[in-house]
Design a binder for these strands. Structure first.
Length: 681
DNA sequence: ATTAGGG
DNA sequence: CCCTAAT
C-alpha cells in the first residue's frame, strides 16, 4: 500500500485586493477610492449591483437577470411619482423611488447589459459603479498571491521549485492554518500579453460605440461628471481583457472625494492603477512588462503559461497589515470581517463611506441626526449621495488539500483554481452595517442607515457562498454549511493534466519526522498566538488539521494530488445578523398607539396591517416589542428615559390603552375557564 | 404564520 | 432587537 502525506491548508478568508488606487492628485496624499451611490437606491439594487456579476465572467450578460423578480417594475412605476410629502411615514417616503434631474433610473441602468453599464456615467449609475467594482476585483485579474508562513512572506520563497516539504523543513511549515495563509496580492493583474491588448482595444471601441448609440440623450444632457467621462474615457473594461475598469469609474469621483492619507507604499500601485487610454495602452504595457522583469524576479514560465503574473510588494508592512486583518477576523468572527474594532485594519478598512453631510459627522459628534426624523428631513431636503469605498472583499473560508511534495508554484495555482472556482461557483454579496448583515434588500440605503454615518468604516461587503445555485444571488439569506464540492473541485480535477505541476513524490508509510515536526510546529505556532481567542481557534484548527492530516492512501501516481476539499466551519458572523436598530419615531409611536387603542394588545398582526403595512422593516413582533417598551417607558420617570423623547400625551394614552386592554384580556381569562368547566361538567 | 414572554 | 415556546 502506498501512502502519501497530504497537507491541508485552510484559508480563512481571502483578501481580495483592494481597488486600484487612483493616481495621486496631491503631494503626499493618497486619495481614497470612493463610490457614489444614490442615497435612495434600494439596498436590493446595491446588492444586485455588487453581487451582480460576481458569477459572470463574461461581460455580456444582462443585469436584468439578476434583478429579475425584484420589485423592479414596481419601482419603475413609482419613479415618476412626486416626492413624498412632509408627514408621510418614513417607509412610505422611502418606498418611493425618485430620481432627480437627468439621472437615469437606477433600475433601468441595472437592466442594461453589463457592457452598457460600464459606460454609464457616475452621476447616473451607482449600480454600474458597483458592478465595475466587483468585476474589476473578482475577475481573473486576481491571481493567487503569495503564501505567508509565520507572518513572513519573504521566507517562503517564490520559486515554484520550492516544495511545501522544503518549506516545512525550513521551519515554515504550511501545515497549520494559522501559520500559512494565502493571500491575493495587493494588485491587479496587469496583462502583458499582446493578444490581450488587442482584444482590449477592440472591446473598448465596441463599448464606446455601443454607448454612444444607446445613450445619445444622456450624453447630451449629461451632468458634469459625464463631461469628464468623455474626455478621459479610460478603458472601461475589466477581466483579463482589459484591466482598470474601476480606475476609470473611480477616477471621475476622486476629485471630490480625496481623503488625506500618507502615501508611501504605492509605488507599484501607481503603475497598476493608473488609468490608461486605449491609445496609451500599448506603451503602458511595455512599461509594465519591463518593470515586471525587473522586480518580479521569480516569475516563472509556468506562471506565464497560466497567464498569471504578479507583482511583489517588498514592503513587509503591507503583508503585516493583511495579517492583522486576518487575525482580526479570527478574533472576532461575529463582526463579519468588518474592521471597525480598533486594530490597524480599521485604517485599512474594507469600506469607507461618507455622506454628503457627513463632514459634520466626522468633525463633530452628532453632526447628523440619527433619528428617523432626521433622515426624513435630510431625505427631503436633498437627494444626497452615499459615497462608498470598497477596499476589499472578504472571501469566505475554504479548504484545500495538497501533497506536501507539491511545489509552491502548484500550491499557488491550486489555490488560484480553487478561488476561481469558488468565486465562479456562486457567491453573493452581503452588505454589513456595523458588522450586521443587512438582509432586507428592499430597504433603501437611507432606511438601512447606510446613508448617514458617524463612523467611517461601519459598512462592509462580504462574499458568501450561495446555498443554491438556482436562487437569486441577492436573496439568499442563509449560509450553507458546506460548499458543494463540485463547485471547487471540478475545475481542479481537470487542471493538473494541463499544468506543469511537479510529479508527486510517493511516500511510504514512515513519515515520523515530518509528523513530529509538524506537531512541534503547531505547538510553536500556538504559542505565538497573540490573543486567547486566537489560541482557541487556532487549537481548534490545528486539531482539525492534525486529524485530517492522517496518512491518506492514494493510488500511485495519482493525478489528483491537487484536489481541493472545500470545507466550511459556520461561524457566528455567518449565522447571525442582528438587524440594524431603528428607533421608532414619534409619528410611528403615535400610529402604534392609535392602532393599539383600537385593536387591543393581542392583535399585533392587525396592528401591523393597519398602521405599518408599508413599513416592511417593522414586523408585528417589532410592534409588540415597541409597545412593551412604551409601556415600560410610560411607567418610569421621564429622566430615566432615553432616546428621542416621546410626548407625555402619547405615553398617557399608552398607559390608558394598556390598562384597558389588560382588563379586557383578564375578563376573557375569567370567562373562558368557566365556559370550559361548564362544558366539562 | 402569530402570539407571548424572556433575554 | 433576538430567540423560542406554544399556538
Amino acid at each position: 500500500m502506498v501512502f502519501k502525506k497530504r497537507l491541508e491548508y485552510s484559508f480563512n478568508g481571502y483578501q481580495v485586493p483592494a481597488m486600484p488606487q487612483i493616481p495621486k492628485s496631491a503631494k503626499g496624499k493618497r486619495s481614497v477610492r470612493r463610490k457614489v451611490v444614490d442615497g435612495q437606491m434600494c439596498a436590493f439594487d446595491l446588492l444586485a449591483a455588487v453581487a451582480g456579476k460576481i458569477l459572470e465572467r463574461e461581460n455580456s450578460s444582462t443585469l436584468s437577470s439578476i434583478v429579475g423578480n425584484s420589485n423592479l417594475n414596481v419601482k419603475q412605476e413609482q419613479l415618476d411619482e412626486e416626492k413624498p410629502c412632509k408627514d408621510e411615514p418614513f417607509d412610505q417616503v422611502s418606498s418611493k423611488e425618485s430620481t432627480s434631474g437627468s439621472e437615469l433610473p437606477i433600475q433601468r441602468q441595472i437592466a442594461h447589459t453589463l457592457k452598457e453599464h460600464l459606460q454609464i456615467p457616475k452621476a447616473t449609475a451607482s449600480g454600474s459603479t458597483f458592478v465595475a467594482v466587483k468585476s474589476d476585483v473578482l475577475n481573473k485579474d486576481i491571481y493567487t498571491g503569495d503564501f505567508v508562513a509565520n507572518g513572513s512572506k519573504e521566507e517562503l520563497g517564490y520559486s515554484p521549485g520550492t516544495t511545501a516539504k522544503k518549506c516545512c523543513t525550513d521551519g515554515y511549515s504550511p501545515c497549520s492554518a494559522e501559520s500559512c495563509e494565502a493571500e491575493f496580492m495587493e494588485g491587479i493583474k496587469t496583462p502583458f500579453i499582446s493578444d490581450q491588448h488587442e482584444a482590449a482595444t477592440s472591446v473598448v471601441k465596441n463599448i464606446q460605440h455601443s454607448w454612444c448609440l444607446d445613450n445619445p440623450v444622456e450624453q447630451d444632457a449629461k451632468p458634469p461628471a459625464l463631461a469628464s467621462l468623455d474626455s478621459s474615457i479610460k478603458v472601461p473594461l475589466n477581466g483579463h481583457l482589459i484591466p482598470h475598469i474601476s480606475s476609470f469609474l473611480i477616477c471621475r469621483d476622486d476629485t471630490e472625494l480625496l481623503v488625506d492619507r500618507d502615501d508611501d507604499e504605492n509605488s507599484s500601485g501607481c503603475i497598476h492603477h493608473s488609468t490608461i487610454t486605449p491609445k496609451a495602452l500599448k506603451p503602458q504595457y511595455h512599461k509594465i512588462r519591463k518593470l515586471f522583469s525587473k522586480t518580479d524576479v521569480e516569475t516563472k514560465p509556468d506562471f506565464h503559461s497560466l497567464k498569471f503574473c504578479y507583482t511583489r510588494r517588498r514592503t513587509q508592512r503591507y503583508s503585516f497589515k493583511r495579517r492583522r486583518v486576518f487575525e482580526h477576523r479570527l478574533t472576532s468572527p461575529s463582526d463579519g470581517g468588518i474592521s471597525s474594532k480598533g486594530s490597524c485594519s480599521s485604517s485599512e478598512n474594507e469600506i469607507n463611506y461618507k455622506t454628503n453631510n457627513s463632514h459634520a459627522a466626522l468633525h463633530g459628534e452628532n453632526g447628523t441626526s440619527s433619528s428617523a426624523c432626521g433622515q426624513l428631513s435630510s431625505y427631503k431636503s436633498e437627494n444626497f449621495d452615499v459615497k462608498l469605498s470598497i477596499k476589499s472583499f472578504n472571501v469566505p473560508e475554504f479548504f484545500i488539500e495538497i501533497s506536501e511534495t507539491a511545489t509552491v508554484g502548484s500550491l499557488k495555482r491550486t489555490v488560484m483554481e480553487a478561488v476561481t472556482a469558488f468565486l465562479g461557483g456562486g457567491l453573493h454579496v452581503g452588505v454589513l452595517l456595523q458588522g450586521k448583515k443587512v438582509r432586507d434588500d428592499n430597504k433603501t440605503l437611507l432606511q438601512a442607515g447606510i446613508s448617514h454615518v458617524d463612523k467611517l468604516d461601519n459598512l462592509g461587503f462580504m462574499l458568501e457562498p450561495k446555498s443554491t445555485g438556482a436562487s437569486s444571488p441577492v436573496t439568499t439569506p442563509e449560509y450553507p454549511h458546506t460548499l458543494r464540492p463540485c463547485d471547487a473541485t471540478e475545475p481542479l480535477a481537470r487542471h493538473p493534466a494541463a499544468s506543469p505541476a511537479p510529479v508527486p513524490e510517493i511516500f511510504n508509510a514512515s513519515l515520523e519526522p515530518l509528523v513530529t515536526s509538524a506537531v512541534n510546529f503547531l505547538e510553536r505556532d500556538h504559542d505565538s498566538v497573540h490573543s486567547p481567542i486566537d489560541t482557541k481557534l487556532v487549537n481548534k484548527a490545528a486539531a482539525a488539521t492534525s486529524n485530517s492530516r492522517a496518512l491518506v492512501p492514494v493510488p500511485a501516481m495519482s493525478v489528483d494530488a491537487l484536489s481541493m476539499v472545500p470545507l466550511h466551519k459556520p461561524r457566528r458572523s455567518e449565522l447571525a445578523q442582528r438587524r440594524i436598530r431603528r428607533p421608532f419615531s414619534v409619528s410611528e409611536v403615535e400610529a402604534l398607539v392609535e392602532a393599539v387603542e383600537k385593536l387591543g394588545t393581542g392583535r399585533w398582526r392587525d396592528v401591523k396591517l393597519r398602521a405599518f403595512d408599508n413599513a416592511k422593516h417593522r414586523t408585528y413582533v417589532d410592534l409588540k416589542d415597541k409597545w412593551k417598551t412604551l409601556v415600560h417607558t410610560a411607567r418610569i420617570s421621564p429622566r430615566q428615559r432615553r432616546g428621542e423623547p416621546v410626548p407625555q400625551e402619547l405615553l398617557d394614552r399608552v398607559l390608558a390603552a394598556h390598562a384597558y386592554w389588560s382588563q379586557q384580556q383578564a375578563r376573557l381569562q375569567v370567562q373562558t375557564p368557566l365556559a370550559e368547566a361548564c362544558v366539562l361538567v
